[in-house]
Design a protein around this nucleic acid. Sequence first.
DNA 1: CGAGTCAACTAAAACGATCTAGTACGGTGA
DNA 2: TCACCGTACTAGATCGTTTTAGTTGACTCG
Lengths: 340, 340
Amino acid sequence: MSQAKRTTIADIARLAGVSPGAVSFALNGRPGVSELTRRRILEIAEEHQWQPSSAARALVGSRAGVVGFAVNRPARTLGTEAFFTDLIAGVQSALAAHGMALQLVVVSSIEEEMATYRRWRSSNQVDGVIVIDPRDDDPRLSLLGSLPLPAVVIGSRASVGDPPSIWLDDEAAAHALFDYLAALGHREIAYVSGPAEFQHTRIRTDVLASLARRDVTGETLVTDFSPAAATSATRTLLSRAARPTAIVYDNDVMAIAGLRVAQEMGVSVPAALSVASFDDSVVTGLVHPSITCLTRDTFSLGEQAAVFLLEMIDAADPLPARRGPAPTLTIRESTSSPRR
Amino acid sequence: MSQAKRTTIADIARLAGVSPGAVSFALNGRPGVSELTRRRILEIAEEHQWQPSSAARALVGSRAGVVGFAVNRPARTLGTEAFFTDLIAGVQSALAAHGMALQLVVVSSIEEEMATYRRWRSSNQVDGVIVIDPRDDDPRLSLLGSLPLPAVVIGSRASVGDPPSIWLDDEAAAHALFDYLAALGHREIAYVSGPAEFQHTRIRTDVLASLARRDVTGETLVTDFSPAAATSATRTLLSRAARPTAIVYDNDVMAIAGLRVAQEMGVSVPAALSVASFDDSVVTGLVHPSITCLTRDTFSLGEQAAVFLLEMIDAADPLPARRGPAPTLTIRESTSSPRR
DNA sequence: CGAGTCAACTAAAACGATCTAGTACGGTGA
DNA sequence: TCACCGTACTAGATCGTTTTAGTTGACTCG
């Protein structure tokens, strides 16, 4: 019925007629055994389906085989953020290819997040961590900079003293979208953003403001990312005498909510109003009209972050920041020149 | 700079003037120490912020503090399934409340999934697992039945010999939706389903077929859950001379894709066609027209599954199957009586 | 008063790997 | 022949916890 006892290094040592230490050397490709014995040991290990015990490894302070991801977002919203879920999927995919696992924990404050990192570090539970949503003067980053725990930050710009980052050029991306709308002839553009403490929100706001020199009036409405907030922001905008001719939303769900408001109020999209989103997802291409989006390959961003982290774990020295996949503009039905 | 050495049970034992064993007893609420010493030990542990080393615990064969979740779905689609992501969020939320972590791994076959369970079991990496998508004669379930590894199955019906399940009454749910459409007057209903090997797909197909006695003609079109497949299935259905007056989709994304096809083909929803989905998500309420859905509180399903699993881990004996949150029918704009 | 019981502890093994210090042995050069 | 070196190993400590088998000492009971 029950499984036989697990095969340990000691078993293999006995079978091969060597000491456990020698087996460990052989299995880890370390010098200290002859090529001949190494092969013999490897063969026996293979034959008896030896699997390393990650608990034992973690205990003695070497690899845990796990990458940690502490997410500081309300658990309820985790599922609705396309960015987040795609990211996890991508991370997973790269980790799985290297036989590593992902430890996911939801925390509810920055303090808790930092406590998690400390705990992980001190008990050797994870080999490295992935950090998202960097802020200005982020205490998490200083902590991770001092803790000997490999970390990759997924952010908006190359970091300097902090742990290395995979960064998306949010400024270029914001320009791609806003410049396109300006080129179409829009002169009044509204931006329905997320909370202001996120770097990417600030960058986008700044880029929009900078369009003033092209005679574009930009306005930012801050929300909490929720569809309800997007709905009410859109109602406000469309109720004005002087409506904007284009509204850009921070994510796909808000854009869809905004689109609905326009339809309810009889504002035809794209004839009377162009709509666009900074986040793509399956549904943006399926709604009617489909929504112009900045398409970021979040899945491969996750993959790249994971690969980067694995390299850092191996390297031990800090590696230089790396640029993530470039976002591209996906033009769909929801944008056009404003009617005169 | 770097953190001091971690506080171990031995440190506390020294400070309290007792042996490490006694500290272990005290910390785990086991008999063997007086109430007085227990309190003293607890106090010292608290003061020095002792944290158990999960590696050491896992090594000696007790709790790992981790719950495993092996997902056998293509990583790319993970992020797009609202069901899946909501479920994870719910599981996470309940686990976090108990200080447990979630280990998530993506596998690509049933064999790999089973190998993962064996590995987890033999190296004590997880304390229990959550299993989704049960099939008929599922080898995973027999494996988990024989492996001493607590498991909770999230499925369509109460299981018998297999590991206990949290089950959703899919039959009642399917009736709720199909009966409602029949009551509205629909006599030709199409069901765009997922792959036939899933239990819930089978159950829904059967329920629809059973409506024949109410003069309802039901037809099932099998897809792979992808929006593209839903698009083409819908085109086929709407191109017929005798169209169905209602189409029900297995999930939210497919329903949105179907809705778009109807709009493209000039079939007005709900006047000429009613549309409904077996899966709800944020967007179904935001698109125009909003889509009638069977709303299942997937988040709390995840929570309940996690709580159930934690109880099983504590109990060690198998517990009876448990009924999950009841799905409710959310009527929105996309359904109405068929026009004559 | 002695045997027996019980509570409250201790000592030490166990888990499975890694890693350091040491040893045996063959070969080399003087 | 001896000192010396490098290679290929071994022995044993180590990580932090749990757990089993004792060992005390106080108390009870006949």
